[in-house]
Simulated scan of single mutants.
Amino acid sequence: MTSHDASGVRFGIDFGGTGIKGAVVDLERGDFAADRIKIATPQESTPDAVVEIFREILDAHPEVTGPVGVTVPGIVRRGVVGLAPNIHPSWQGVDADALLEDRLQRQVHVVNDADAAGYAEAARGAAQGRTGVVLVTTLGTGIGSALLHDGVLVPNVELGHLEIGGRVAERWASAKVKKTEDISYEEWAERLTVYYRHVVRLFSPDLVVVGGGVSKNHDKFLHLIDVDVEMVPAHLENRAGIVGAALLAGN
């Protein structure tokens, strides 16, 4: 097993509705320092069940001590989980910071999953060094979003839930919808154009970063989105949640 300088690495865990992923993150490079571990999210994703998976993931790297960053697919206010429809309802209202610190016996910082991804892209990815307003979106099961100003995160900006033309945006323009409805990249880009034009009108960002796993195929659709703002693909793709969680832990 590889040993790591504890000052240079930190553990990040990305808790999603279908999978729980964790990795050791090199804080300087802003990327994985060891292979990612992935375990399926239990069907009953209660705090008790999920904590045991967190412990299993952390036990795979006992040499890495110190704070742990954890993402949750829902609203997080000062460590307390709010609306989180893709995980067990018993998480709602839980002080996850306090619960996980007690159960894992180490410092834990819990953050919204899209916020973690956005912070990672701003700190070590496609938006590194950029000032002004930066919007980071993740196209996946839904549409995640993170808003930053001069690198400072504005938490819990849920822009995938915007209603546009009587439709919830992520139920019409997410990567999951593209796959489920089997629409072409061209048709999907038309929907994304409607979505991004609406968001740009509301927030006037200087830069939009498009992330999520589908960003690895950005050459098939990003240039087709007709919006009057600079748009770039994410650098960290779907590694961003883990990296962002690790970077934010201990801050």
Rank of each mutant, 00 (worst) to 15 (best):
G82N: 05
V108P: 12
R124N: 08
S145R: 08
V94Y: 01
D97R: 11
G79N: 14
V154R: 14
V94G: 07
G125H: 03
Q92V: 15
L147H: 04
A122D: 04
V108I: 08
G125R: 11
I164Q: 08
A146V: 01
L159S: 02
T138D: 06
D102G: 09
V110N: 12
L104V: 07
L100Y: 01
V111N: 01
V108R: 04
P155E: 15
H109D: 11
L104P: 07
G125M: 05
G118V: 03
N112R: 05
S145T: 09
V94D: 03
V94K: 13
L162C: 05
V154C: 02
L162G: 01
L139Y: 07
V80H: 07
N112A: 01
T137N: 09
L83A: 13
D150Q: 01
D115K: 12
N86C: 01
Q105W: 04
S145N: 07
A117I: 13
A123W: 06
G82R: 14
L135E: 00
E158D: 07
E121F: 10
I143P: 12
E163A: 14
G93K: 10
L135F: 01
G79L: 09
A126Y: 06
S145G: 11
L153F: 00
L104F: 10
A122C: 13
V81L: 07
G166Q: 14
H109N: 13
V110W: 07
A117R: 03
L148W: 00
V152H: 08
D115I: 03
D113R: 02
V152Y: 11
A96L: 02
V108Y: 01
L148P: 00
